[in-house]
Nucleic acid binder design. Structure first.
Lengths: 196, 196
DNA sequence: CACGTAAACGGAGTCGGACTCACCTTATGG
DNA sequence: CCATAAGGTGAGTCCGACTCCGTTTACGTG
């Protein structure tokens, strides 16, 4: 663990190129499902040596985190868009399903979403907070419109969604995932019998 | 990875004693939250050497699995008892909460429950299947009584519960966990608005 | 109660994989 | 075109899971 490149002063051309290459190689490996790809292999397939990898990323974990940040960004931008186009209730429903579809894209993606949602790993603190905010936005819009319960927080719902992403690779998992999502959605709607 | 002790012929007295000691030491470590306790340490605190540990357990993972099997057994026995004492709907509600409380007992326990519920690790295939069966029992009783949806399987619900156990150690997590559980329960009850 | 022997034990050693560091290479601004 | 700081390299370190074989011990038998 060594002093990293300072974020100040723009990167030298070759450094930026290598950084891209590393991220792209890692992306390919992780999204492809090889979640315990070796750093040596990632470095080699990016055409650099491990030392270079460690010049750009504190640890193997940090590299993984970086790879997935963009995916999470996309996801977090969705609620705003959905709320513009639909009722809060429908926006919520669509966002939950969007999450499921995202998890379907690649084994790696679902593992990460799971990590974000279902663990306390400090690596994902940031992503977790942003996802919780995204969900809060939807829940608040819904409860303001009176169609969604107002006693559930974004972070609560986030946790509840965690299990969904662990389902990858099970026979017919997409069907199950959508079902769980619907289950949660129904529990969230105003008018459900409340046991709380 | 070496040929293990054959299960035939009862263990020699000292071997059985050491096996118990190892399980007990591992239990203490894992349930106490140190989920990446080193095999060396576990062996030492059991008063044996690593070689002995590996004579009894194929891998570190196998040892962990063994430690938690008993916990899972207890949990899986609960639905039968609950169904004797309560309506199916109430039995289901209580079982879900029991799961939460179990996760509350120790950090290690919740990590394992999470592993069982939210991953595909073959290590937990058996435990996962038994948990799913336990949940199916409850769901079927409920749908037979007409108070619970009949379109949700035990394994679906199991997945949905996975996220709950990832919440350990968050401020006020028990409250959140109970809330998610209630959310799911409400979605499961017959009479909820169904979006499926 | 020896004593033979199969069972069990110990722990130094191997192996694999993440991470480091001392030295070499090269982009870049003056 | 040169100086120099930024960047790259990869053999080597470290650490932890797992193995191997020489030693010790439980226990059935004469």
């Amino acid at each position: 663990m060594e002093v990293l490149l300072p974020a100040s002063r723009p990167l030298r051309a070759d450094a930026r190129r290598n950084r891209e290459a590393l991220l792209s190689a890692a992306r390919q490996a992780f999204l492809g499902g090889d979640t315990d790809a070796h750093v040596e292999d990632i470095a080699r397939s990016a055409g650099v040596a491990v030392g270079t990898l460690y010049r750009h990323f504190e640890t193997r974990e940090a590299l993984i985190e970086e790879v997935y940040r963009k995916e999470v960004d996309d996801l977090c931008a969705a609620p705003g868009v959905l709320l513009d186009q639909h009722t809060p209730e429908e926006a919520l429903r669509r966002f939950l399903l969007l999450l499921v579809d995202h998890a379907a894209v690649g084994k790696g993606m679902s593992i990460v979403l799971e990590s974000i949602m279902a663990t306390d790993s400090p690596v994902f603190d940031d992503a977790r907070a942003r996802m919780a905010d995204a969900l809060s936005l939807l829940l608040e819009a819904g409860s303001a419109a009176g169609t969604v319960r107002d006693d559930v927080t974004g972070s609560t719902l986030l946790r509840a969604l965690g299990g969904i992403c662990g389902m990858r690779a099970t026979e017919g998992w997409l069907v199950e995932a959508r079902q769980i999502t619907a289950l949660l959605f129904d529990g969230l709607r105003h008018g459900a019998p409340q046991s709380l």
